[in-house]
Design a protein around this nucleic acid. Structure first.
Ligand SMILES: NC(=O)c1ccc[n+]([C@@H]2O[C@H](COP(=O)([O-])OP(=O)(O)OC[C@H]3O[C@@H](n4cnc5c(N)ncnc54)[C@H](O)[C@@H]3O)[C@@H](O)[C@H]2O)c1
Ligand SMILES: NC(=O)c1ccc[n+]([C@@H]2O[C@H](COP(=O)([O-])OP(=O)(O)OC[C@H]3O[C@@H](n4cnc5c(N)ncnc54)[C@H](O)[C@@H]3O)[C@@H](O)[C@H]2O)c1
Lengths: 232, 232
DNA sequence: AGGAGTTTGTGAACGTGAGAACAAAATTGG
DNA sequence: CCAATTTTGTTCTCACGTTCACAAACTCCT
């Protein structure tokens, strides 16, 4: 039997839990902003849109930060989750591909407020170089190496067309970027040890379309089956 | 025992499989574009970035569309998946909130090419009304009802600030929209039978940050544990 | 026609995640 | 100080998802 304490850095937090921690963090921030100092697992679960048993189990992987009979101290729990995720420090981020989407991302204020700092905007199109978006200048893609080394960047965002994405990823990996957020509709091949997460609008829409089609077709027999594929 | 044939509309496709079908569809389109007529499960799995056993099991939920010893006919399989997802028909979509992100979405060509048609752009800001984005005029949010009824819209996209999102969702649900894609960092409450999918940039970055932190910390003891949280 | 080789479709084993249920630990009121 | 009440942390069970492994089914070559 191996028991792992909350200060043991080797303890493993399930991936499904990791994906929910940012949601809890946001919910706690909202509670704090509305002046609430303490909350029960039930309260927080409602705010985060999950089941309270699941919430408690998730939090138990981090440690024992609640008080039985009372609940959780909002600020304290928020700090503990932020520390666990690693957003008490600032993460430098580069964005590659400053087209429609890249512009929107560069303008997104939610970056800064959640522990991420855009240190550079890069594009291969000479026509864009020098332009300033949200106070950051667009620079040539070739400066990637210099920028990553200067700011010790570990996280890269790809917002180029799909065809360019693998090339950009290869270049990022070569200089030591180990986490990539990919908006291009392409499957990226990367070596072991590099994390890739993708955000794909059309996949999300197609998933919705699938369920939508079933709702429409199965109005008779499959109605029950369609409904439980259901909501939030 | 209940056996469900591929033509039985009540058969259930696991949610995890549904989420991968669009990826297969894209991979098949790429193969078709490069002139490939037939492919094995191994080929397609590589192109889609998944394990070939998983791919075969996923496809088996749709029916038996391959030929043993040969593989899959690219065009035929592509059509079958498209039909299953429901993207052989066009889905009308409305986008609400034409700010930074809404502009990018409206300009996104991947919508049209994958079976979705933007029938309206809506915003509450009078200053934006009348402006045209990608050939579609921005109209007042109040026209939502009329537009949804005219075009029989089932899918809505929310790209407003977080505070406005729940209100927009309520209004969408009230007129009969049953699928929502939400870009605002807010938990939406919707009735049973309405599907919500969320796309949240900062959650994705925070998940990357968590793994990044572990890679950095655990350089010694937790290296193995960190690595297997690892890559694609 | 028959055997060698290939590749699908699926049964079975394994691992991960969700939710119900409850004991343990705290508070509150008498 | 003790009993009643609240709420956490954890155990147990079930459902879902992944992967292996292989028989069945097909092609191709001789
Ligand atoms: N616009 C959206 O709402 C949206 C939504 C979902 C997905 N996407 C995807 O995001 C990506 C970007 O979309 P977009 O609408 O901004 O496209 P875009 O064409 O407007 O912008 C792409 C940018 O990438 C740059 N670029 C091209 N090759 C490059 C390279 N090798 N290195 C560096 N920069 C390079 C181009 O110069 C251009 O500025 C696409 O893959 C698209 O499919 C976009
Ligand atoms: N910009 C990004 O890259 C990005 C990334 C991730 C998430 N988001 C999220 O997406 C949302 C939009 O981001 P943005 O940068 O485009 O913001 P934005 O402020 O540029 O645009 C928001 C738009 O919504 C409109 N709006 C506000 N209330 C409305 C209402 N009740 N009905 C209809 N329209 C309304 C505003 O008029 C504005 O045009 C935000 O919730 C943001 O957190 C943005």
């Amino acid at each position: 039997m191996t028991t792992r304490s909350s200060t043991d850095p080797t303890r493993v937090i399930p991936e499904a839990t990791v994906a929910r921690l940012p949601v809890y963090l946001r919910a706690l921030t909202a509670l704090a902003d509305s002046g609430i100092r303490t909350c029960s697992s039930e309260d927080l679960a409602t705010a985060a849109g999950v089941n309270s048993a699941k919430l408690r189990k998730d939090l138990s992987y981090l440690g024992s930060y609640g008080t039985r009979g009372v609940g959780y101290d909002v600020d304290y729990l928020r700090y503990q989750i932020a520390r666990e995720i690693g957003v008490t420090q600032d993460w430098p981020v580069v964005i590659v591909g400053i087209g429609n989407l890249g512009h929107a991302l560069a303008n997104y204020s939610g970056f800064r407020s959640r522990g991420f700092r855009v240190v550079a905007l890069l594009d291969a199109d000479p026509g864009l170089i020098g332009q300033t978006v949200a106070g950051v200048a667009v620079r040539p893609f070739d400066e990637l190496e210099a920028i990553v080394q200067e700011h010790d960047v570990a996280i890269g965002v790809i917002a180029t067309p799909a065809l360019a994405a693998q090339g950009v990823a290869d270049r990022m990996v070569a200089i030591g970027i180990t986490s990539i957020l990919n908006f291009a509709p392409a499957v990226l091949a990367v070596p072991e040890g590099v994390d890739v997460r993708k955000v794909d609008l059309s996949i999300e829409l197609q998933i919705l379309a699938y369920h939508e089609q079933r709702k429409a077709n199965g109005a008779g027999a499959a109605a029950a089956a369609a409904a439980d594929g259901g909501a939030a």
